[in-house]
């Protein structure tokens, strides 16, 4: 007896219908890089996988006015190869380059990364940094949820049975804004993030910070923007001292949430350095 059945959806409508089937517990399948590992370790909680990886509507990468739209079934490789995203979402492209070797980048999808809900996911901090909305469909209708609000804890999301993330949208960043992504792993490839940081920012014509985003990954059980760090940057002139102060504030904010865990002694030092470094990359103007 097979552990589960497989069906391939040709459209979002068909996928939503299949996922809504009350007779058969179904779960979306995109790149497969998470699902196939999970069924190896624990018996599946679903009876059917609905393959959404080739639904054309979920493969788009396009600019729609002041927004960028990225389909949930877009792979990391497709992100890396997108000229539009290289221009508008550097942090997302850099994160995609670091997610794993080419085979993982060819299979793994942005939607899958979000839906899996791992705290160490590399694709998610950039989305939160970009203020992305996840567009979720189910048989009752469609809703748009900030990506950060979709994540409720380690490997937990607010997604319900029958939900399908179809695409993400995020506003084009202000003129002159830059973003970056830094990953710290135990190895240079095929490594889970010990910590990562997505950051973005822009300076006014007077050289003061007018836009700042700081999103550490693998730091909190629930990913979010470090608004306390962003606020202290706004209106300031970039300087080494500012970056270090911001880094220290990020560490403080992390420990305030997590308390002192086994890894805190390490992470509080490393996060300060990574946040400072990310801000340096974003705000240092090369000539």
């Amino acid at each position: 007896m097979p552990m589960f059945d497989y069906v391939r959806a040709k459209s979002v409508a068909e996928a939503v219908e299949l996922l809504a089937d009350t007779q058969c517990v179904s779960r979306p399948l995109a790149g497969g890089t998470d699902v196939l590992v999970q069924v190896r370790h624990t018996p599946p909680t679903f009876q059917r996988l609905v393959d959404v990886s080739r639904i054309p509507e979920m493969k788009i990468i396009e600019r729609q006015g002041d927004e960028i739209c990225v389909g949930a079934a877009v792979t990391y490789t497709e992100i890396i190869e997108s000229a539009l995203l290289r221009e508008t979402a550097t942090c997302l492209v850099e994160a995609s380059r670091l997610v794993g070797g080419p085979a993982i980048a060819n299979a793994g999808t942005l939607g899958g990364n979000v839906a899996n809900g791992a705290a160490c996911a590399d694709g998610v901090p950039p989305l939160v940094c970009l203020d992305a909305l996840a567009h979720v469909r189910n048989s009752a209708g469609a809703r748009a949820v900030p990506v950060a609000d979709l994540l409720s804890g380690p490997h937990e999301t607010m997604l319900q049975r029958g939900d399908l993330i179809t695409h993400f949208t995020f506003p084009v960043m202000p003129d002159g804004a830059r973003s970056t992504f830094i990953k710290l792993g135990r190895r240079n490839a095929q490594a889970i993030s010990r910590l990562n940081v997505a950051a973005a920012g822009a300076l006014s014509s007077e050289g003061r910070v007018i836009f700042a985003r700081v999103v550490p990954g693998s730091a909190l059980p629930r990913l979010r923007r470090f608004v306390e760090v962003e606020n202290m940057l706004i209106g300031e002139r970039p300087s080494e001292a500012l970056f270090e102060t911001a880094g220290a504030e990020a560490s403080r904010a992390m420990v305030a949430v997590t308390g002192r865990r086994w890894s805190t002694e390490y992470k509080e030092i490393a996060l300060q350095g990574l946040v400072a470094r990310a801000l340096r990359q974003v705000f240092t103007v090369e000539n």
């Binding site: 399948l29 790149g31 497969g32 890089t33 196939l36 070797g101 085979a103 060819n106």
Partner: peptide
């Protein structure tokens, strides 16, 4: 069998994939 080693890599529609991670 968990997509970490690449011993199972094949080319699928022009792209490298780990065949252990493809249903």
């Amino acid at each position: 069998a968990v997509g970490e080693c690449g011993a199972c890599a094949v080319i699928m529609d022009g792209r490298l994939v780990n065949s252990c991670m493809v249903l």
